[in-house]
Amino acid sequence: MTATAPPEAPPEIDLGGEARSRRTDRGFTGLVALAGLTVLIVLGLILVTTSVQAWPAIAADPIEFLTGTTWDPNEEIFGTLGFLYGTLVTSLIAMIIAVPVSIGIALFITEVAHRRSRKYIVTIVDLLATVPSVVFGLVGSIVLIPWVQPIYQWWAGVVAPVPGLNVIFDETNTGRNYFTAGLILAVMCIPIITSISREVFATVPDIDKQGAYALGATRWEMIKGAILPHSFGGLVGASMLGLGRAMGETIAVALVIGGAIGVNTNLFAPGNTMAAVIAQQWGESGGLHTDALIGIGVVLFAITVLINFLARVVVRRAEIQMKGAHS
């Protein structure tokens, strides 16, 4: 490991507990404590440094920054509501798709699959997690978009006479839009939601499941009656972790969302998200524009940290309730 350990010295020498050895011990304790504290230090530094850097852009008009929909770097008008809206809409689409699918996969792995096939399914989900996000963006922007574009057009035509739906699903031009971004995000969230859901299902007491079967329940009735009610809290936490992942995803979204500014109720229209706009405009930005982009990052950071923190608390509490012990 690290260079602190001297090569093999006979342990008897240490038995006396000389001052030097005691000092090494104390030094080591300090060293590992410092390493542990790095996490807190880095998180704190992220918040402080980026906030300070972004302050000029935000302070000019904090209300405009959070609620304005006009984003014009040349005029130094920085309204980020459109990006917040894009982040919320795309991650909502992702959640609507990913949560049921992930819970289904987790149920399949824990309850349906045989031991041997279980391994392969876990591998599939793990592999999905290892694909770099930029590759999802590449496949999305070059392969997926030409495929889904006609489907969008067809669907917009189908729902055109339906009031309400025709506002959400309207004309589409390029296929680079909120909905495509939501689809890609859904795929990227599946691994994390699945793995946490599996952990949650694993804490359901076996006696409850066997009890349900003994009462004559079918497998589905057992899942409905024994597993799901027990796991509800944990599943909420798992979904929130997925949500945090979806809101922070940058590159895949930047490649497929189109990069329009403002709020658009049409899911088939191009838009932008908080994370994606930073990646898209970073190269050409400078001065206050860069600071404003960092400001978007600060808001995103606050939101995702809050969501992740709550999710961890929810998951932990659910586990404690179930097992009656700390994990």
């Binding site: 996490v39 992942r245 995803e249 940058t250 990646a279 990052g297 995702t304 992740n308 923190f309 932990r316």
Partner: peptide, 19 residues
């Protein structure tokens, strides 16, 4: 620290870049 390390795994990667 354990909880915050878990939270830190969920921090968007672009944030590390901005930091």
């Amino acid at each position: 620290i354990r909880t915050m390390a878990d939270v830190m795994t969920g921090v968007p990667s672009i944030m590390m870049g901005l930091f």
